[in-house]
């Protein structure tokens, strides 16, 4: 199935080459868990600090859950960041 992966701050470099605006449409198996997705894109786990699926935060302990995503979902990931 197809989902949108968005990687921000310095994680943007880990997106497929040619990606624009920090996002890429990618093909993933339906059974994928968020941690498998994170590992697949070589994101060091501590750097996957803020993980949002369609804008909703997914905490650490739920990231091993298989079948976590639906087609067309948007997964957005940030390293530890802050502002104000």
């Amino acid at each position: 199935m197809q989902i949108t992966l968005k990687l921000y701050a310095h994680l943007g470099d880990l997106l497929p080459a040619g990606s624009k605006q920090n996002k890429a449409m990618i093909e993933v198996p339906e059974s994928i868990s968020l941690n498998e997705l994170i590992d697949h894109f070589h994101i060091p786990r501590p750097m996957a600090h803020l993980v949002l699926v369609n804008g909703v935060f997914v905490c650490d302990r739920d990231r091993d859950q298989p079948f976590a995503l639906k087609p067309q979902d948007a997964v957005a990931i940030w390293p530890p960041v802050a502002g104000g």
Partner: peptide, 19 residues
């Protein structure tokens, strides 16, 4: 700290826009 040691100096507070 990942935020004060790296995130803020590199991206500033503006990293929040997409978040």
């Amino acid at each position: 700290n990942a935020v004060t040691g790296a995130g803020l100096p590199t991206y500033g507070t503006q990293v929040l826009m997409n978040v």
